[in-house]
Design a protein around this nucleic acid. Structure first.
Lengths: 228, 228
DNA sequence: GGAATAGTGTCTTTCAGACACTATCTG
DNA sequence: CAGATAGTGTCTGAAAGACACTATTCC
C-alpha cells in the first residue's frame, strides 16, 4: 500500500502518558481514597504527573520514568490501566499531542516522600479542586474503573477481596470492609460483607495453630486474614 | 519545563488506529457474532482494517476514514471503544508505530457491500483463523468488552436490552434472547430471560391498540417490543 | 459492670433457574 | 388432530440486607 518513504514523511503527534495514581490513605481516622496531584508549570495550575514517550519507549517504560523522575518513588509492581485516549488536536497549544491517560493503584507506603499532594476523591468521583486540561475527567474515569473492581455485591463468584493490593499484610474483616467503603464511598452492612468475603480469605494462624488476632486496643480482638 | 524547540525535536511514533468491527449476522438459521476481517498486503495475511493518524486528526476522524476508504461503508453512529494500546516498538518493522485498538459495533445491514469477510467468533472469543500481529488479541478483548455489556444476569437494575443496537426495528423476546445467546455464546433459559427483560421493553401496539404480533409462520405469534 | 468492637443465627425479600403447564398459531 | 413456538404459574435455592443477639476485650 504505502511505501517506507511516504510513511516516514507524514507528521506525527507527540504521545503523552498521564498518570492518575490512586491510593487509600489511612493517615487519619478512617481510610480515604486519594489521587496524587502535582503542581505544573507549563500552564500554571495543578494536574497529574505525565511525560511524553521518548524514542522507541513503551508506555510501561514511560510510566517508570514518570514515577522515578516526577513522583520520586520506585517503579510500579501492579499493572497500569489504560483509561482513555485524549486526541483533541488543540489540547496542547505547544504542539500536536495525543495523551494516553492511565491509572495506577499503589499502596500508601509506596508514596512516602512522593512529590505532590494526596487529594481525597469525593463520592461522585470528583476532586475538591479543578485540575488543568482533562485531568478531572481522567480521575473520574480512573475512579469508576477502580470501583468496578471493588464492587463485589453482584459477583457471587470470583470475588477478589483487595484486587489492587491496598492492604499489605494480614487484615481484619473490619479493615477490609472500611477499605471497600472508602473505595466505593458507600456504607456496607457488616454481616453481609463478612459472609461474602469469608470464603475468599484464609485465617492467619500462629505457630501453635491458635488463631492470630489483631489487638487494636478497644473491643474484642478480631481474627486476622490473608487473601486466599 | 521543556521549551518548544526541544519538544518538537524528539522523535515521535506513528499512531495507528485499528478497528475490530463487530456485528451479529443472522444470514443463516441462528444469529452469529462476527468480526470483519480483511486481506492485508504489507505483510501478507489477514487482519483488521486500520490506518495511521493524519496531521492533527482525531481518532473519531480516522475511524471515519477507515470505514469510508478501507471498509467502504458509511461512518459510524455508535461510539467507538478504546480496547488497548499496542506499544511494542518492534511491532511494525517499517517504523516506530503505536497502535490504538478500537472496537465498533454495527448493525448487520450497515455492512452490506463492505470489503472483507465476516468471520464468526468462537465461544472463547477467538477466531477460526490466525490473524497478523496482535489482531487476535484485539478481537478477544473487543469481544470480552462487548459481552460485559450484554451480561445482564447480575445487573438487576439498569438492564439494557440491546446496548449496541444489533436489533433494528421491533423484535420478539425470542429474537432478543437469541441475540444475547449469540453474543455471549451461552444458552439462556427462556423464562428467566423474559422476566428479566420485560420491564425494560415497551410492547408495540397497532393503531387500534391491539398488540402487534410477529408472524414468523410457524408456532404461536409473539408480541413485538421496542426498547423502553 | 459498661463501653466498644467482633461475630453469628434467623428472617425477609429478591431473583435466577427448573419444570410444567397453558395458549395460539400452521398444516 | 400434531407440531411448533409463546407465555406463565410455581417451586427451589442462593444470596443480600435487616435485626437482634452473643462473645470477648479494655477500662
Amino acid at each position: 500500500m504505502s511505501n517506507q518513504v511516504s510513511l516516514e514523511d507524514y507528521p506525527r503527534p507527540a504521545v503523552g502518558v498521564d498518570l492518575a495514581i490512586l491510593t487509600v490513605a489511612s493517615t487519619t481516622d478512617s481510610p480515604r481514597l486519594c489521587v496524587l496531584v502535582q503542581d505544573r508549570t507549563a500552564p500554571d495550575g495543578r494536574g497529574l504527573p505525565g511525560r511524553f514517550l521518548r524514542e522507541r519507549q513503551t508506555v510501561f517504560n514511560a510510566v517508570g520514568d514518570i514515577l522515578r523522575l516526577k513522583v520520586n518513588i520506585a517503579p510500579p509492581t501492579s499493572p497500569t490501566r489504560l483509561i482513555r485516549l485524549f486526541d483533541d488536536p488543540d489540547r496542547d497549544d505547544r504542539t500536536w499531542a495525543v495523551s494516553a491517560a492511565h491509572a495506577l493503584s499503589v499502596h500508601e507506603n509506596t508514596l512516602a516522600g512522593a512529590r505532590g499532594d494526596l487529594v481525597p476523591v469525593a463520592a461522585d468521583g470528583g476532586l475538591p479542586e479543578a485540575l488543568l486540561f482533562d485531568y478531572d475527567l481522567i480521575v473520574r474515569e480512573a475512579v469508576t474503573d477502580l470501583r468496578e473492581r471493588y464492587e463485589t455485591r453482584k459477583k457471587y463468584r470470583d470475588v477478589q477481596p483487595d484486587p489492587d493490593g491496598f492492604l499489605a499484610g494480614p487484615f481484619t474483616l473490619a479493615q477490609l470492609r472500611r477499605l471497600h467503603e472508602s473505595v466505593l464511598s458507600v456504607e456496607l452492612p457488616k454481616d453481609s460483607f463478612n459472609r461474602r468475603m469469608i470464603g475468599f480469605l484464609r485465617p492467619v494462624l500462629r505457630r501453635n495453630r491458635s488463631p492470630a488476632l489483631s489487638s487494636d486496643g478497644v473491643g474484642r480482638p478480631a481474627q486476622l486474614y490473608r487473601k486466599r
